[in-house]
């Protein structure tokens, strides 16, 4: 399922002193089965964009097509000017069947462990599927499957989610979304607060989910992650997309990196130092530490 943004704008608190433009003329296609990383400074609009993906936030203007679901708030003109009255009417209309959309696109928020509330892990994971009209039996079935995907075995089913460790809680929360069997999994800064080991396991989990056919769209500040896992990087700056390309293309653009206060991934920084000393590395082959070592090996031979 692909997601298409056409000239999407979003402004917070319209008409209030705190009014703030968060997205400006965003046009982008998230292709079928993609792994896209949203990057940019805090406050550049990443989180706002993610929430548009399943209509938690509706655009001020613009059109979003999520599979066959269409949210059309594109501007209406009258005598060369925006027809505010018509726009107002458009916005007031209630969206139909928003649940069918939320089932296709699942969002995992930052610190998802804070959304757990049931007495047992299994019940918490079943909560979503049941909301979407699954029967008790069906919900159980998909929940078992989802918990298996996040590597939590049957010994966890009857435990209270609140006695688990931080990393385990986060897995339960993600299972709660996976149990909806979404086509697209959206994650807002998923690795914040995890230790190195937890982060590694978690990213492997996301990679697995991706390889099973689910699209992944995430926002992050972790450039190592972007280089290693993402196929596409989307750089936001003050609500605008300034680059949408492969991570390697982004990390070659020194000026852009500097402007957005982004650090290069450590492997590329290290590679740069070696290149300066005369080692002819091909950065396109470098994604992580093993591939860096291999590239060094290739050059030395």
């Amino acid at each position: 399922m692909s997601i298409k943004f056409e000239k999407v704008n979003y402004t917070y608190d319209i008409g209030l002193p705190s009014e703030k433009v968060a997205l400006r003329d965003i046009s982008h296609i998230f292709s079928d089965h993609c792994f896209t990383a949203l990057i940019g400074k805090t406050g550049s609009g990443k989180s706002t964009l993610l929430q548009h993906l399943n209509a938690l936030i509706l655009p001020t203007s613009g059109k979003i097509s999520i599979g066959s679901y269409i949210i059309d708030f594109s501007l209406e003109y009258k005598d060369g000017k925006v027809d505010e009255r018509k726009m107002k009417r458009k916005r007031k209309k209630k969206l139909k069947d928003i649940k069918s959309l939320r089932k296709k696109v699942g969002i995992v928020f930052q610190f998802p462990e804070y959304q757990l509330f049931e007495e047992t892990v299994l019940k918490d994971v079943m909560f979503g599927p049941k909301n979407f009209g699954k029967s008790e039996e069906e919900a159980k079935k998909v929940s078992y499957e989802a918990l298996k995907q996040v590597d939590l075995d049957s010994s966890y089913y009857e435990r209270s989610p609140f006695e688990l460790s931080g990393g385990e809680k986060r897995r339960v929360a993600i299972a709660g979304i996976l149990a909806l069997e979404p086509d697209v999994l959206v994650l807002d800064e998923p690795t914040v607060g995890l230790d190195a080991d937890g982060e590694k396991n978690f990213l492997n989990l996301i990679k697995d989910i991706y390889s099973r056919g689910t699209s992944i769209i995430l926002s992050t500040h972790n450039m190592d992650l972007v280089l290693k896992y993402a196929e596409n990087a989307l750089l936001l700056e003050d609500g605008k997309i300034v680059l949408a390309d492969r991570p390697h293309v982004l990390f070659k653009n020194e000026e852009l990196l500097k402007r957005s206060v982004l650090r290069k991934p450590k492997v590329l920084e290290f590679a740069d130092e070696l290149i300066k000393k005369g080692l002819p590395l091909n950065v396109e082959n470098i994604f992580d530490i093993p591939s860096l070592a291999k590239e060094i090996d290739r050059c030395k031979r």
């Binding site: 400074k41 805090t42 914040v192 607060g193 500040h221 450039m223 206060v261 982004l262 650090r263």
Partner: peptide, 8 residues
């Protein structure tokens, strides 16, 4: 600094 972005 565990909960901060790289700049922070």
């Amino acid at each position: 600094s565990a909960m901060l972005d790289p700049k922070g």
